[in-house]
């Protein structure tokens, strides 16, 4: 598949190109914007907002909590030795383990969720140009046509390129 993209110097030019592509009938989900830094002040960066990572982190914490409760209670009951005059299932010291495993569950789930939802690691071909590292902003679509080229050029693209992805 041949994709076409334009490179922009400024985020407001990238925003104009993004708006122009939408007006040209391209669905927002098909427009890729790649930058060397996040641009929260512009509309193109708002479309992927989601609370999914927060929900997954909470779920990871709950899984960690339940696993810890099962681990400490299950193993203490499996070999019921009295230690230091404490009950066999001593919740005060067990709370330390439960807290740590809850937090570990939330932390690990956050990182795994970040990788999965961001499609990382990804080492194949993708819509990318090393000029992004020099501060350029890439706006591209997974198709090429004269309309797209004109839209990118008219909105201030310093270069328009095609690439197989």
């Amino acid at each position: 598949m041949t994709a076409m993209y334009g490179l922009f110097d400024r985020p407001d030019a990238a925003q104009r190109a993004y708006t122009g592509l939408k007006r040209a009938g391209i669905a927002p989900r098909d427009i890729t914007v790649v930058s060397g830094e996040p641009f929260e002040a512009f509309e193109f960066s708002h479309r992927d907002h989601s609370m999914i990572l927060f929900r997954l982190a909470l779920m990871g914490g709950i899984i960690g909590f339940v696993s810890a409760v099962l681990l400490v209670r299950g193993t203490e009951m499996a070999w019921p030795l009295v230690t230091g005059g404490m009950p066999v299932v001593a919740w005060w010291p067990n709370l330390v383990i439960i807290f740590e495993m809850t937090m570990l569950g939330a932390i690990v789930t956050t990182v795994v969720s970040l990788l999965v939802t961001s499609s990382l690691p990804k080492f194949g071909k993708s819509l990318y140009d090393p000029a992004v590292s020099d501060g350029k902003i890439l706006v591209g679509v997974p198709e090429s046509s004269d309309v797209i080229r004109d839209t990118l050029t008219n909105n201030g693209a310093v270069a328009v390129k095609t690439v197989d992805v």
Partner: peptide, 17 residues
């Protein structure tokens, strides 16, 4: 870099994380 490109989705997920 794990194949990081810097799409808006990646930036948003990274900031949330």
């Amino acid at each position: 870099a794990l194949g990081w490109s810097g799409t808006t989705k990646q930036w948003h997920r990274l900031e949330s994380a």
